[in-house]
Structure formats: structure tokens, C-alpha cells
């Protein structure tokens, strides 16, 4: 008798009733191939389980514990233009309690924070991914490498630096959005300035108990970025071919492009 692959899979997953199990087992005695398939299913199941087991022992953020206990907690993230942020250092933005994810008004109220200050707290004095040069934040290390070489479509989801969107700005510079993973996790926008990537904006999560926690821009922050990008962008975001061509030219815009975006 033949046993379908789905039946074998169900057997490996413990989904068969006694009669069906019996049938698989007797077929297995006659055909060693079936046993081989079955052990393949089991090995895959174990391998997948093992690959994801480490995540279970990670520490749980306090805000989730608080949520599970049924106590509403403040949660907001901020997107900051660095110039505004520098001007605002020393000022504290009011933090709304229980903001809604998608309420633009709430987000707007929380935009100004001293990210410049926060940034340097985050990296103590300097970060391996950014440095200051003449008052500007410049990408370096892995961030600079990824910005210069990585095509968005080809990146590995496990890379610490993720590229979002690449586009030509009205200024004639190429810009790319990025997200950094890890415990402290800003996202931002960097534009090619000469041979460097200047970080134009970074996102910052709220100050939680004295530690600035950066986070990737999802949800609310994307909205703000979208807005600022819509103000900057000339035309449409680059597709894969566009990114590739720009990368090949070292992220220098062509005369043709400059003419196109000229007012």
C-alpha cells in the first residue's frame, strides 16, 4: 500500500489516530523508503524547533510584562530631525499616555526630543556605526558598508542593518532609509554627501527609566518618515535596477537625473 507524503507528515506530527498509525507502521515494515521519509520529516521538525528555541529564553521587555498584567503603560516612539533635536536639547517632550499607534496627531506631539544627546548616550561617546564630522552625523562601519553596497532586495533578514527604501532626493543626493536591529535600535535616513553617508534623521524610543532605548521604525514612525521622505523625494523610490545602477556609480547622481529634478 502507498502512504502519501501528507500522511507521513501527519504521522511525524502525531496527528494520526491509532488505525492510521498502524497502517503507516505496517507499510514502513515493507518499504524502508517510507521510514527514510519519516525520519526526514522528524529531523526537519527537530531542526526547526531547535533553531527557534533560543528565542524563548530572551528577556521580556517590561512593557510587555506590564501589558500582560493588565496595567496600561506609556509607549511612544519619536522620530527626530537632527537639527530640531539639537535645538531642542534640554527640552523634554511631553510623553502622552497610551498613545494610539496610528494617530498622527499624537505622534506629532511627541516628535521633538534631544536625539542628538540620546544618540551619544546610546553609543557612550561614539558609536561603531556613526561618528560626528563637522557637526554632522556620518555613517561608518557596517552601516556605511551596507548603505554603500547592499541592495534592499538582496539583504538577509538576519543582517543587523536593514535597508528600507532608496531614492533620489530633490537635493540631487541619493538617500536610503535603514533600520538597525539589536537591543538598542535606531532607524534612520541617510543621504550620500560626497563620499559619505550623512545621517539625516534617527528614530528614538521613549526614555524608559533613564536609558534611551532606540527602536526600529515601524508603525507610527513610518508615518513620520514617510512624510519627511515625501518632502525630500524626487519622483519614485528606486527599484532594484535603479539601486544597482546608483551603487555602480558610487551613489553619484547623473546629469540627466539632476536635470530632471531641476526646478
Amino acid at each position: 500500500m502507498t502512504i502519501s507524503n501528507e500522511t507521513l507528515m501527519a504521522y511525524a506530527d502525531g496527528e494520526l489516530d491509532a488505525a492510521a498509525r498502524e497502517a503507516v507502521e505496517s507499510a514502513m515494515r515493507e518499504d524502508p523508503q517510507i521510514e527514510k521519509c519519516l525520519s526526514q520529516h522528524r529531523a526537519l521538525r527537530e531542526r526547526v524547533q531547535a533553531a527557534y528555541s533560543a528565542e524563548l529564553s530572551e528577556g521580556i521587555p517590561q512593557r510587555l510584562l506590564t501589558a500582560a498584567k493588565g496595567v496600561a503603560s506609556p509607549r511612544e516612539s519619536k522620530v527626530v530631525n537632527l537639527q530640531d533635536a539639537r535645538a531642542a536639547i534640554g527640552r523634554t517632550a511631553p510623553r502622552p499616555l497610551r498613545p494610539q499607534w496610528r494617530t498622527a496627531a499624537t505622534i506629532a506631539a511627541s516628535v521633538i526630543v534631544g536625539v542628538g544627546l540620546g544618540f551619544f548616550m546610546w553609543g557612550r561617546t561614539e558609536s561603531p556605526l556613526m561618528r560626528t564630522a563637522d557637526g554632522a552625523l556620518v555613517a561608518r562601519g557596517q552601516l556605511a558598508r551596507v548603505l554603500s553596497y547592499q541592495l534592499a532586495a538582496e539583504q538577509s533578514p538576519s543582517s543587523a542593518v536593514q535597508i528600507g527604501l532608496s531614492f533620489l532626493a530633490k537635493s540631487g543626493e541619493y538617500c536610503r532609509t535603514f533600520a538597525l536591529s539589536g537591543a538598542v535600535s535606531p532607524s534612520g535616513l541617510a543621504c550620500r554627501h560626497g563620499t559619505e553617508w550623512q545621517v539625516q534623521a534617527l528614530t528614538q524610543a521613549p526614555d524608559t527609566g533613564g536609558h534611551s532605548e532606540y527602536r526600529t521604525a515601524g508603525s507610527a514612525m513610518s508615518a513620520i518618515f514617510l512624510k519627511s521622505i515625501e518632502g525630500l523625494i524626487a519622483g519614485e523610490p528606486l527599484d532594484q535596477a535603479g539601486e544597482k545602477a546608483a551603487r555602480q556609480r558610487g551613489w553619484l547622481s547623473t546629469d540627466h537625473e539632476l536635470q530632471r529634478i531641476a526646478p
Binding site: E55, L56, R63, L64, L65, R75, W101, S185, T216, G218
Partner: peptide
């Protein structure tokens, strides 16, 4: 919570989004 986070990461592809979702 650990399982919810792990599950959410599978589709958000981003741990912070996953935590927001959870």
C-alpha cells in the same frame, strides 16, 4: 509572552514591531 514574541517575529520580521504587536 516568549512564544507570542517569537510567533510575531515570524511575520513582522522585525523584533520591535513584533513587541508592539504583542
Amino acid at each position: 509572552l516568549p512564544r507570542l514574541r517569537r510567533y510575531a517575529r515570524n511575520f513582522t520580521r522585525n523584533r520591535h514591531d513584533a513587541d508592539d504587536v504583542v
